[in-house]
Design a protein around this nucleic acid. Structure first.
Lengths: 196, 196
DNA sequence: GTCTATATTTCGATAGAC
DNA sequence: GTCTATCGAAATATAGAC
């Protein structure tokens, strides 16, 4: 039952937003009463919290990938596999990614749990370290940020425009795209790009 | 005063989220009472609505840029300037972009105004036409979606990691990046990219 | 584990004086 | 244009029976 509550909640949070989703709605869709939910979760926020912890798990994996990308930036033969797993992982957890994109503020301001706080800070710190690390050229770091946004955008789907495209085909195209983004050095200079 | 309300509201909506921002908070930060706000806006949603209309204006400009990019994809000499204006426009309206990123659901579910509805549908339709247009190769369309996400990500800044970088330098780096993303044909094949 | 019933709080919105 | 005072609705959360 606990799992059913989480499923339905994730659905509703993405449809209507966390704040506008009432416990009554969740209960209705599960054909139980509001009070029943309180047997499984002490507070409404605890539902969102549990979902966020699962998102965190994804985040840690993804960061692991990105970090190894940053350190292996010279060994181009090493990271295609890493990149593949990264994108596949995001693509196969679309609902959780959507939760992050569509409920940013609600997720950002949860503060009722210590473990959650710690994980949040850890993620934030590692992401910052990755993108603010002076050892990596700024241009490279900007491109890493771009690649994260790129993958997110396609997964979010901007209204599901790519909904009809098979997931693996989409993944392949995204991989190609952000490969061009992260490895611009593989190309010869056509004289078009650098304008300064 | 109306403008001051909008400014403070935009600030608070981005900090705490639209739903969690009460009129009391907005009023407090302006050193007036809640009731005073109702002289300037009939409903709370009308504040968000006005902000969204300004975001729409940005969206129309941006879409214009993107549409001309799509149609001019062969004339590589034509669009760098177009692209520049596009990115500059987004970068100089960071707060409004943030509103979109951090209050997706709240913005998505506003339905109290006819003009707003019409503009919303128009934008959605044109974006869909752009990204679902069968005349443009799927790979190209995926890359366009990627580029939108890339720009957004850097502007959103994932916690302001690039806050210390001068805006024009950042803009230049993003331009370079999404140029590589949108014009992969400018490069020679190293044998690394296509794997099928 | 789920129910009915109710307590508690908060917020959006209104009325009317100044 | 701003204030005080208040209404009404809706949501979270609790108490206690089954």
């Amino acid at each position: 039952m606990r799992e059913r509550i989480l499923d339905v909640s994730l659905e509703l949070f993405n449809e209507r937003g966390y704040d506008k989703t009432s416990l009554r709605e969740i209960a209705e869709r599960l054909d139980v009463t509001k009070a029943a939910l309180y047997y499984h979760f002490e507070r409404k926020e605890d539902i969102l919290l549990e979902l966020h912890l699962r998102l965190h798990a994804l985040g840690f994996k993804a960061l692991g990938h990105l970090e190894s990308l940053a350190s292996d930036q010279q060994r181009a033969d090493a990271w295609p596999a890493v990149l593949d797993r990264f994108i596949d992982q995001l693509l196969s957890n679309r609902e959780l990614i959507l939760l992050h994109m569509r409920n940013y503020n609600a997720l950002d301001q949860m503060q009722h749990d210590d473990r959650h706080e710690a994980e949040n800070e850890d993620l934030q710190q590692r992401l910052t370290r990755l993108l603010a690390n002076g050892d990596v050229p700024l241009a490279q770091r900007v491109r890493m940020a771009c690649s994260i946004g790129a993958v997110m955008a396609v997964i979010g789907g901007y209204g599901g425009v790519f909904g009809t495209v098979p997931a693996d085909e989409l993944a392949e195209l995204v991989r190609d795209a952000i490969r061009d983004l992260l490895l611009p050095d593989d190309r010869v200079d056509t004289g078009l790009r650098p304008r300064r």
